[in-house]
Simulated assay, not measured.
Amino acid sequence: MTDGHSHRTARDLMSQGAECIPAHETLDRAAQMMRDSHVGALPVCVDDRVTGIITDRDIVIKCVAEGRAPSAMRAGDLVVGLVSVPVDATVEEALQLMEEHQIKRLPVMADMRIVGMITEADLARHLPDDQLVEFVHRVYMDA
């Protein structure tokens, strides 16, 4: 990116597409989907509408570590809200949301549907080093 990176949008940063897991699916199924897709997070959907995302860490901390069975908990049980960004949001807006909510993955939406996800790997590919370092510091160090 150049100094004029403010013209870039969430669409420019995101990885295309994101496979959703229905809210009624179990966490063991979510873990299998993450494994098979080589991702650490999945959007959770109800009737093709994203209601939030769950991460591999959510499954470990909020299910396994509490002695619950992943086969007995549903993906929707872990969703606490959706933080997302529209495709035309600026890079700065996307970074600000991620920093403000201390999240490392951000769903990108168009017409109320998920079209992609901004991840740390996407940021590493697209941001200048100084901006990436600042983001990492704010999300990890201020947590």
Rank of each mutant, 00 (worst) to 15 (best):
L82T: 03
V46K: 10
V108M: 09
A75H: 08
G40K: 09
A72G: 08
V46E: 13
R105N: 07
E134G: 04
I103G: 01
V44R: 03
A124Q: 14
V60M: 11
H137C: 14
I53D: 03
A75W: 13
R49F: 11
M112H: 14
Q131F: 11
R113C: 02
L95C: 08
V60A: 15
V39P: 02
R49N: 09
R35W: 02
S84G: 05
M117G: 03
C63P: 00
P70A: 00
L42G: 02
I54L: 01
Q32D: 09
V44K: 04
I54W: 06
G52V: 07
A121P: 02
V115A: 05
E19K: 14
T9Q: 06
V80H: 14
V91K: 00
P128H: 01
I21A: 06
L42A: 04
I103D: 06
L27P: 00
I61K: 13
A89H: 07
P86T: 01
Q32W: 10
R35V: 04
T55M: 12
E92F: 12
C20K: 10
I53Y: 06
G40V: 04
H38L: 08
T51S: 04
A94I: 02
V64D: 05
V115G: 09
A65C: 11
A41V: 13
L123D: 01
L123I: 03
S6N: 15
D47T: 05
A30E: 11
S37G: 14
D77T: 01
P107I: 07
R113P: 00
L123T: 08
G81L: 12
D77K: 04
F135G: 02
